[in-house]
Amino acid sequence: MRTARPRHYLMCRPTHFDVVYSINPWMDPAKPVDTQLAITQWEKLREVYLSLGHTVDTIDPLPGLPDMVFAANGATVIDGRALVARFRDAERIAEGPAYHDWLRDNGFPDLRTAHVVNEGEGDYLLAGEWLLAGTGFRSDPRSHDEAQEFFGRPVIGLTLVDPDYYHLDTALTVLDEQTIAYYPAAFSPGSLAVLRRLFPDAVIATAEDAAAFGLNATSDGHNVVLPHNATGLTEQLRARGFHPIGVDLSELLKAGGSVKCCTLELRTAAQSHDPA
């Protein structure tokens, strides 16, 4: 039996969403973006979370920061402590202070901005007692030591090798404390061996489902919210006893983001022992 547990999420309405620069292979400024459609799709995701009993806070979007909708990148919050992101790309640097201020003003006084490049839950995913940490394209590998010292939890470094999957949360999702799903081709041979050793019963995504951003998902231990067109992954999850819920975030995918990218989990000390 899978058990759903209430989550506390932070999201950012895509009021200023657009693709005006390219910092990952999914972004093409030459392709038109429908901001209103992006808002409608985002609102549907928020409604799904609320219908599942989760708490959803929102941070005000700032003009000139079209990627601020991807709240997962803003910080990592575990045990009530927040390590705020330090972005690699100049276009996103101002997002860090915005998330820092929101967390400070909303009950997270124990916080620090990362000293080296660290793109929040884009590259940091809590799996039981382990903090899975991605590197290769965005977060600096030195940030793994910083995160381990800050959170006092063992950090498992994982190297990404396919630029289409530039953040860990595009190639791996945590389903519960013991179960993950991931796309093997996104990882270096050594990192893949680590994943196989730590999670021998993992759900393995196909290339088609990974390309649909099916792994950019959220789970409360039972309900898994993921892109609706990751159909093979949906069937695998259902067979494992999870309840997959498909949503359409196709407009946001034009910037290389989907469900998880839009969702930063705010974990208190008690909640940090639940699946991420």
Results as ranks from 00 to 15, higher is better:
T3V: 14
R5T: 15
R5A: 15
P6F: 06
Y9V: 07
D18R: 14
V19S: 08
Y21D: 10
D28E: 15
P29M: 03
K31A: 14
D34T: 10
I39L: 09
Q41Y: 07
W42L: 07
L45K: 03
Y49W: 12
Y49C: 12
L52T: 05
G53E: 13
T55V: 14
D60R: 00
L62M: 06
L65Y: 08
M68K: 02
A71L: 00
A72T: 11
A75G: 02
D79K: 05
D79Q: 07
R81N: 13
A85K: 04
F87E: 01
E91C: 08
A94D: 12
W102G: 07
D105G: 01
L111C: 14
A114G: 12
G120K: 03
E121L: 11
E121G: 12
L125S: 00
E129L: 05
D140L: 01
D140V: 07
D140P: 08
D140W: 02
A147L: 15
Q148Y: 08
E149T: 06
V161A: 05
L168I: 05
L168T: 07
P184T: 04
L192M: 08
L192H: 13
A193Y: 04
L195R: 04
R197H: 14
L198M: 15
T206W: 04
A207E: 10
D209R: 06
A210M: 05
F213N: 01
D220R: 07
N223C: 11
N223Y: 14
L226F: 13
P227L: 05
L237K: 00
L237M: 10
V247Y: 09
L249S: 01
G256D: 06
T263I: 02
T263G: 07
T263Q: 11
L266S: 00
A269V: 07
Q271A: 15
S272K: 06
